[in-house]
């Protein structure tokens, strides 16, 4: 669970980074393609997490607490 959480925030951050780097003027064409592919990968990861959203609403029983 914890791992997954890191992965959404991390994936989003990586996605933003890839996009930033791709925008940079100094990026070579090879790098640009690499950043694009990375970005798409992170986009897919983020999207997957959001698409698999299956919100649960539970109530603890008194005995548990």
């Amino acid at each position: 669970m914890d791992e997954k959480k890191i992965s959404f925030e991390e994936s989003l951050k990586k996605l933003e980074e890839a996009s930033e780097k791709l925008k940079s003027q100094e990026t070579s064409l090879e790098e640009a393609i690499q950043y694009y592919e990375e970005g798409i990968q992170y986009f897919k990861e983020c999207n997957e997490i959001l698409d698999n959203a299956s919100q649960k609403i539970e109530t603890l029983t008194k005995q548990e607490a």
């Binding site: 989003l12 996605l15 933003e16 890839a18 996009s19 791709l22 925008k23 990026t27 064409l29 640009a32 393609i33 950043y35 694009y36 970005g39 798409i40 986009f43 983020c46 999207n47 959001l50 959203a53």
Partner: peptide, 23 residues
Amino acid sequence: TNQLREYIDSIRKDLSKDLAGAV
């Protein structure tokens, strides 16, 4: 979460646009 979806979609579009721009 809907804003988040829109946001990552917009980044995705940026990626394609920027790669095309670089080319």
